[in-house]
Design a protein around this nucleic acid. Structure first.
Lengths: 117, 117
DNA sequence: CCGTATCCCAAATGATACTG
DNA sequence: CAGTATCATTTGGGATACGG
């Protein structure tokens, strides 16, 4: 249930031993990016997300989106029009998460652009 | 090189299309946790990290640690004593990263403890 | 247009044993 | 103690084609 981590001997932050719930999803490929893409462009259609993650396949994107919806991080609004339209947006919790993710990705991006590929 | 993302039409944050560098490593299992464990206990020995991530195998942990070192996020200090001792700590960049990771994991932990497994 | 269903392959993780 | 090497396995992810 909890972290079962009582070793923080120097008063610094606790650690986060268990690997469950949201973290597992976040670890999957493209998940963090998807969250941020939605956060930056919501409401956003499937195709747009796809455009932003050109290297991700349809099925992967679909899977990620579903997982995120299952975890209550994004909403999926379907409009029965012709042509069909579906819009994804963040839930309140998703927005919370995104607030943490954005600075992280920004940081990672900076660091990547220095010397690595 | 860059994000190639110029679609931020509403003035909100940019998005982070490419999946490279640090993010790739962060996506691997246990990476975020390892960073935070080191951050909370540095300098920390291999066995201690292992104790904090009971479900991770030796080889996985070893691989992660090496990747993190390769990316300049952690340092590895080896003392040629008997018994051998190795200590891991964060680099400046690692600490930066950890600063982003901690709130994220904290948030994730809270959320996980609510209803999910 | 927005996906889901399938199949296949590659990568990643786990388990274990053995060495400096 | 701190790993590395190896092997087996699982899982994730890519491609594709078809359905609503």
């Amino acid at each position: 249930m909890s972290t079962n981590c009582t070793l923080t001997d120097d008063g610094s932050p606790t650690c986060y031993c268990p690997l469950s719930g949201v973290i597992e999803v976040l670890g999957r490929k493209y998940t963090m990016q998807i969250m941020c893409v939605i956060g930056a462009h919501e409401p956003v259609r499937f195709g747009v997300v796809e455009d932003h993650l050109p290297t991700a396949s349809t099925s992967t994107l679909s899977a990620r989106l579903e997982e995120l919806a299952d975890h209550g991080l994004v909403t999926r609004e379907q409009y029965d029009e012709i042509p069909p339209r579906v819009e994804y947006a963040l839930t309140d919790r998703g927005r919370e998460l995104c607030g943490h993710l954005e600075p992280l990705l920004e940081w990672a991006e900076e660091r990547t652009n220095r010397s690595e590929v």
